[in-house]
Amino acid sequence: MIPKLLKIGVVHFAGCSGCQLMLLNCEAELAILAQRVDCVDASMITSATCEETPFDLLLVEGSITSPSEQQHLQKLRLRCRHLVAVGACALTGGINRFDAPTRETACTHVYGPVADQIETFSPQPVANFVAVDACIPGCPPEHSDFLDFFGALSCGVWPTQRDAPVCMECRTRELRCLLEEDHLPCLGPITIGGCAARCPALGIPCEGCRGEVSEANRDELCHLMAKTHLSKSELKRRIQRFTGGENV
């Protein structure tokens, strides 16, 4: 019997395309993946475009920045059984949320006289407009995030959402603590793991690209950060980089 192919789509909003590139970066697994899925709409990956076909699964990358994107997203939601928000921009607005100091002034800064023709609002997470069934975190997500995801789906279940911090992975790998020992501004204690502590392993402090764990102890982090060279406002910006710029 030929197994039914899962009809998937990938849609890109404001972002860098790094998330869907990470899917294509699973080079060794693409042949196996292609046995399980049929990509029916994804402008970077396929020239097939089906305006009406329902999707079993729609992967959404990027944040929503205009009324037309919002409408497009809502139309797509009606066509898909499951919607998955992929990457920091889709999950929190990501670094697009940095509109210093406001969206209007940023537009004027860049576009000058044609700025008032631009219909745009501050970048928003996908979940502000549509129901999201699952999330793949990261800026960008890891290889393993995609493989875990499709692996679980092919067994008929959603993958487990990780909620243990990067610090746990540092401990497991017995890495030197950059925060306590080197006084570097590492966000490992409050950031969702799953990257095998990629940055601390290179001596680079975690920048929080996988988003915050659900019970992030920011007070304790700020206390530990007191010994780093960062000023209060720099620390705030660092924490905000991938958390959507909410109040810290």
Binding site: C16, Q20, F98, H109, E234
Partner: peptide, 30 residues
């Protein structure tokens, strides 16, 4: 494409933040 406004969002930011922010302009040529 959607507006990203990188040149505006960089203004006022410390040199230390710039490399991590600008590589996010593009996932293919980061």
């Amino acid at each position: 494409e959607s507006p990203r406004l990188f040149e505006a969002l960089l203004v006022g930011r410390s040199w230390q933040e710039v490399p991590e922010l600008v590589c996010r302009i593009c996932g293919i040529c980061s």
